[in-house]
Design a protein around this nucleic acid. Structure first.
Lengths: 129, 129
DNA sequence: GTGTATAATGATAATCGTAATCATTATTGT
DNA sequence: ACAATAATGATTACGATTATCATTATACAC
């Protein structure tokens, strides 16, 4: 039996922080943002709610870079660019048509629910240094 | 000063195993494959050489799924499909034209060196069960 | 072949992001 | 208020990966 979700102010705040940034936060960053405002926040709660949001589709995982998972509250279709030098994660437009998941489903015989496109390289700031 | 690489039979074997499979191995799998043949192989050596191959571009990282990094010795452009249920990683054709990195470079002002496209869903075996 | 320099390895311990545990607190509905 | 239980804080546990270091293997000069 699935459990009923109760309201939680801390959870609301975590989601609000996730939605308030153009960055692609990890657990520690979310925690640092909220600690001044919510002194009795636990890092475990951040991890718990990130896992919940991800499971429920309220946020997406961009991927694990250098051992750290990064999230994105913008679930609309778009691609990402990861700088190998400074680690910045930038947004890109979708770049591909919406039929790509259907194409992948047809090719594999399975069901593709979504896809993630990640470019690796040097960002504008890092490419000449 | 960059160091000169010396020949190593164990390194050769690790690369041979990586190239011999259609799977997308992680460190533990490579280790298990070679242990019967090379009893005195260390898991640390596998990790060391995977990192070396990746750094030198001889293999690619497909990504970290469920906390485990998976590699691919096939460096030609193609996409991947990851089954959420059984964890299988399947190959797909390129699906996009080769101009995508140039496009990402132009949009960001940086230099995109490569990209990775990963579909998430249920594979043919898992989708009805 | 012997010797020297040093890259590569095995064994082990350390790291560190994340998940599990459990007693306590907060929320919901009566 | 009260009972039921979801959510949290504090802490510990976990597990993949990386670092350490003494030992071994490779390359190369002589």
């Amino acid at each position: 039996m699935e459990t009923t979700r109760k309201h939680s102010f801390k959870r609301d705040e975590i989601l609000r922080v996730l939605r308030s940034t153009k960055r692609h936060p990890d657990a520690a960053w979310v925690y640092e943002q909220l600690r001044p405002v919510i002194p009795d926040l636990s890092l475990g709660t951040v991890y718990r709610n990130l896992a919940l949001f991800k499971r429920e589709g309220e946020i997406l995982s961009v991927g694990v870079f250098d051992g750290i998972e990064h999230f994105d509250a913008d679930t609309s279709p778009h691609a990402h660019f990861v700088c190998r030098r400074c680690g910045a994660i930038l947004d890109l437009p979708a770049l591909t048509d919406g039929a790509l998941d259907a194409e992948a489903s047809r090719l594999t015989g399975g069901t593709a629910q979504r896809h993630e496109i990640v470019f690796y390289g040097l960002c504008a700031d890092c490419k000449d240094s």
